[in-house]
Amino acid sequence: MTRSTLISRIFDTSRRSFRAAGLAGLLLGGAGLAGCGLQKDIDVELPAYPAQLVVEAYLENGQLPRISVTESVEYLAAPTPSVPTDVTATLTLPDGRREVLRFAPGQDRRTGKLYTHLGPRTLAAQPGQTFGLELTDTKGRRVTGSAVVPVLVPIDTVEWVFNDKPEAERRAYVLMRFQDPETPLDYYRFQIHRRRVNSNPEVEYTVEDRLSNGTEYTLGTGYDFKRDDTLVVSLYHLDRPYFQFLQSVQDARNANGNPFGQPSAIKNTVEGGLGVFTVLSYQRRQVIVK
């Protein structure tokens, strides 16, 4: 039987809709918040918050290791980036060798990402191998993490279907199929970019195989694409810590400004600081919607 997990996306849509529904419902009897002067700036006194090291490290097979190390700040602090310059980053390879990543801030042209530390050589990462990361600074802070390379889950098919509207309004939805492995606790991130992958994707959501492990999955979009659109469809296979980190980031963002939201602590994949250390395992297909 063909299986689909639109669930995460629809859950996500439902959550957003539900919040919108709740707030809209509340507002029906009253009036628009801003329109009635029901919002105002206030001064808040927050307890002191000590800065922590924040790492974003996404290793990829065949790529130079590039990681970014920043610092968290008090929420109402000035929006100036806080980049510590005294952090030593050391990568532990699967064979136990340790490589120091040098502090060399720059921008990765391929992904558009800013980084602070750069590895000396391209990485060879095979599924099942474990990498380690250690950050230390002159203040005595130490952040550690390890990451296992997920197996590659290939994309089986990418197809699209146009609706019946006149040509000027005709749009297509895209379906991507893949086979979920028999192993439990698999997580996926589905993205569709237009042309290039170094910007925000057009479509993005995460799914898990909790409800139907080991079956064929079909991930889809709405009627979002026109004829001749060039799309890059990506399927990332995530491990559980990275998936939970992404979820917690989303939950933490949603809690700010949502009276019904419960604040969510960030589920870091590293210890001693904040952030994520993982090895990316993904497959991409470029298609032109004809």
Binding site: Q191, S199, V249
Partner: peptide, 18 residues
């Protein structure tokens, strides 16, 4: 607190509340 999060693609970093 908050920290800046870039994610895997190179868009502008956004603030994540702590």
């Amino acid at each position: 607190g908050r920290f800046a999060f870039q994610d895997i693609y190179g868009s502008d970093a956004s603030a994540v509340p702590i």
